[in-house]
Nucleic acid binder design. Sequence first.
DNA 1: GTGAAAGCGCTAACAA
DNA 2: TTGTTAGCGCTTTCAC
Lengths: 344, 344
Amino acid sequence: MSRIRQRAPLTGPSPTPTIKDVAAQAGVSTATVSRVLAGLDGVRPTLQERVHAAVHQLNYSPNRIARNLRIRRTRTVALVVSDIQNPFFTSVVGGIENALQQADYTLLLGNSDENLDREQLYLATLRAEGVVGIILAPTGARAEAYEHLHHTHLPMVVIDRCPPRLHADSVAVNNSAGAFAAVTHLARLGHRRIGCITGPQALRAHDLPVHPSLIRYADFRQPGGSTAMQALLELPEPPTAVFVGNNLMTLGALQTLHERGLQIPSDMAIVGFDDMAWASSLQPPLTAVVQPTYEVGTTAAHLLLARLNDPQRPLQHVVLDTRLMVRASCGAAVQAGITRHDLA
Amino acid sequence: MSRIRQRAPLTGPSPTPTIKDVAAQAGVSTATVSRVLAGLDGVRPTLQERVHAAVHQLNYSPNRIARNLRIRRTRTVALVVSDIQNPFFTSVVGGIENALQQADYTLLLGNSDENLDREQLYLATLRAEGVVGIILAPTGARAEAYEHLHHTHLPMVVIDRCPPRLHADSVAVNNSAGAFAAVTHLARLGHRRIGCITGPQALRAHDLPVHPSLIRYADFRQPGGSTAMQALLELPEPPTAVFVGNNLMTLGALQTLHERGLQIPSDMAIVGFDDMAWASSLQPPLTAVVQPTYEVGTTAAHLLLARLNDPQRPLQHVVLDTRLMVRASCGAAVQAGITRHDLA
DNA sequence: GTGAAAGCGCTAACAA
DNA sequence: TTGTTAGCGCTTTCAC
């Protein structure tokens, strides 16, 4: 029976050829093959050609695992995000992948799904996989949860939420400034009662020029935004404009407005957060605070690559600015009128 | 100078401890450590405890690279997608990641960006990285481009677009059936001139119960959908309803309708493709053909895992069905009226 | 300029 | 039950 499965010893090179096979085929030593493939000079052109020919004939591709073991270093970077399904990360991942691939690094992806245990598990696994650095979008955990990573001396850059006092490079978006710009914009348009729907941890909503009674805290999800908008509408004196602090909650808020048959922006002006593809297809098109998501990704990758090149360089904390994309939902078209009137 | 950088030989275990360090610390051989960590029985409990203690003390984590080299097999799977930024893939990646992580595999991610060269480069790199299987969302290339993969004997499952005659497991979505359902739905609602905006390769649009003159081919992107809709509106007899074959083109089509001040669904009924979070926040909420994207991911992962367990199993081609999510943009509310009228 | 040989950290056959 | 040892495929001294 088993004889059927035995490989004939004279079959020649193994199914996946090794450097030995190449060396034999080219009539040189494995050392020479290694040199040629590494592009080191000091190898006679004749031999170089023989090696290349053999490589080609055997369709040889060096075993990275063996190489990594030998040089005790990989070219692999880990990315652990807190929610791969969130459109914010889609774009971030795109930016990271692009930057890394250009630098000839490969990307190991993990999704913690906002679950701290899963995140820690990933961090451990990836260390064992020999990743040479980590880009982490932390779950809500505090800095202490990541302290143990220092002992591994694994370069890490943290994105999106950056736990204070965490000893790592970071890149974040200046969300509060974005929120401030949005609310200010609405104020300039003449609104005096501006509502605000924001996340649970609240981007320091109290710093905003908004009356506290008009602030609602929700959970960053669509239903939360919907409920919060309902609450605002049921106020004795509802706001005339509202700023919503993230993309999904914006969708919820819109849903509520539509259900109630309210006109945007005349009945309620609205400014959202995160510019998504659909923002300009809404009726009216949505004015929004735009986060440079792709750049968050590329910046994070570059920070990591820089640290790999120079582990001693000082920590760097990059904060990227948002941009206010003015469309129609804030009633900006009306502004000209108001302003002229005011001036008159 | 260099003396400063030299590590004292008596420092004890290296910064990242190896199995040797653990063995020494526990006073056993490396073989025993390996056995204990592999959970093999036949090791005296005393020793087991000593090993575990040492592991804990040294914060040891086995080097996967060395292990992989030794057992000549990794637990890594590669995913190469054609456009990581596309929301369709966001969800697919989520499904794959989840299924793989449950089976204790790690995921290597590549983004070909619809670029065949980059795709082939990735496929080569990943083979060298010792991935044990590949999930591929191919660029537009034909089957021949992937023929050489067979020689590597690397299990592969193809998703989304499946080149005919490619010898691989696959999972696809029955888009034509979805399109058919959408158009039929519109027809049932009483529409006689139904337009169709579809992709370049066209999901066999000619099979649809739609007049060929009302079909427009675009590029799956937002501007394309916008232009196509304009073209339909400029027809001497424009359609009264339109089916749009993907999410981004739907956004474009909506944009055009809004710009022209046309009412949905009275002036133009519309059914889109892909159910995105925003679909229900549109005014009116969008009726859409829903793809089971997350399930595409989990199914692909499971097909791959199954093949890893049994390389000889017959090829399997899974086709998942779409679902028609009826909201208001198709004018379904009107239907009751029409139907009753018809019956009367 | 080239090859022989050691060894990266681990597992598994074999010996004891 | 436990230890000794060979070797996975590669890179890199070191000697020629």
